[in-house]
């Protein structure tokens, strides 16, 4: 197999990223949050759900609560640290699932064309005609708010988009002569889709996946903010803003810090994607 080639190429990409300052900033932000998420139990000063009644008297940032406490007296820094776990587990799982389904459907639609394409395309059309939020609302309303259901909702929204992208690239790549050569030596359709076509679509897909992680982070935050995300009390950044937004005019820090946290992670993903795109144009 050509796995060596793929790994070498991925490594090459990471090495090249050094030459894109924007990409480096993005990588730094993302790696920072991954680090925080992994070592949350070690870094977080308090239990994220512990109510400190003393802090309620003056919840503003202090030596005890570095970033202050929220309206229930919980330490904001600890909640932000633990909240990064939620996002960095839910978002990648959702994106990977959407990718597996989207790639398979897109490959089939683009490779077989004809009625397979028609059916897949129609279904994608119908799902795409829902504004994302409407789909989120329906799925969560139907299934109830939980991490799994947020993943389901993201899969519903992202899969048809990925299917479209992969289908478009497959339609183009299937006309390459090396695909004809593979058919002529008797390769199966599955081999051609997965070994001849998919690896050559990886460039744009890596960039898209990175962007999509950012958008998914936003979606998780938005669902949390709208009260459709994780059920309380587990910390999630969007939910933290929702719970404290009413006190905005008195204690703006309660909303500001989680808002800044989610923003920095999404900006990280976006800049990283831009850096990847930039270097992929070079080779």
């Amino acid at each position: 197999m050509s796995n060596d080639g793929v790994i070498a190429l991925a490594w090459n990409r990471i090495r090249l990223l050094k030459e894109s300052p924007v990409g480096m900033v993005g990588a730094f932000l993302v790696l920072f949050w991954i680090f925080v998420a992994i070592f949350a139990p070690l870094i977080a000063p308090y239990d994220p759900n512990a109510n400190n009644m003393d802090a309620l008297i003056d919840p503003t940032p202090s030596a005890v609560n570095w970033l202050g406490a929220d309206n229930s007296g919980r330490d904001i820094l600890s909640r932000i640290i633990w909240g990064s776990r939620t996002v960095l587990i839910v978002a990648p799982i959702a994106v990977i699932c959407a990718y597996i389904i989207g790639c398979l459907l897109g490959l089939m639609a683009g490779y077989y064309r004809g009625w397979v394409d028609q059916v897949i395309n129609r279904i994608a059309d119908i799902l795409l005609s829902f504004p994302a939020i409407v789909l989120y609302i329906i799925v969560i309303m139907k299934l109830g708010p939980s991490a799994i259901n947020v993943i389901m909702a993201v899969i519903f929204v992202a899969t048809p988009q990925i299917t479209r992208i992969v289908r478009g690239m497959t339609l183009e790549l299937r006309e390459r002569d090396y695909v004809a050569a593979a058919k002529m030596r008797g390769e199966t359709a599955l081999y051609i889709m997965l070994v001849e076509i998919l690896p050559n679509a990886r460039g744009p897909l890596i960039v898209d996946a990175c962007l999509r992680l950012g958008y998914t982070t936003i979606a998780i935050g938005v669902l949390g903010f709208l009260g459709l995300g994780l059920p309380p009390p587990d910390p999630d950044w969007g939910g933290m803003v929702k719970e404290t937004y009413a006190m905005m005019t008195i204690y703006p820090h309660m909303s500001l810090f989680p808002a800044a946290a989610i923003t920095s992670l999404v900006v990280g993903f976006s800049l990283l994607a831009d850096g990847m795109r930039e270097i992929s144009l070079r080779d």
Partner: peptide, 20 residues
Amino acid sequence: KRAVQMVFQNPDSTLNPSHS
């Protein structure tokens, strides 16, 4: 399949860029 094989026109699309 063995009996009929083909050489294509475009050198850039004849080989899969991902395979050695």
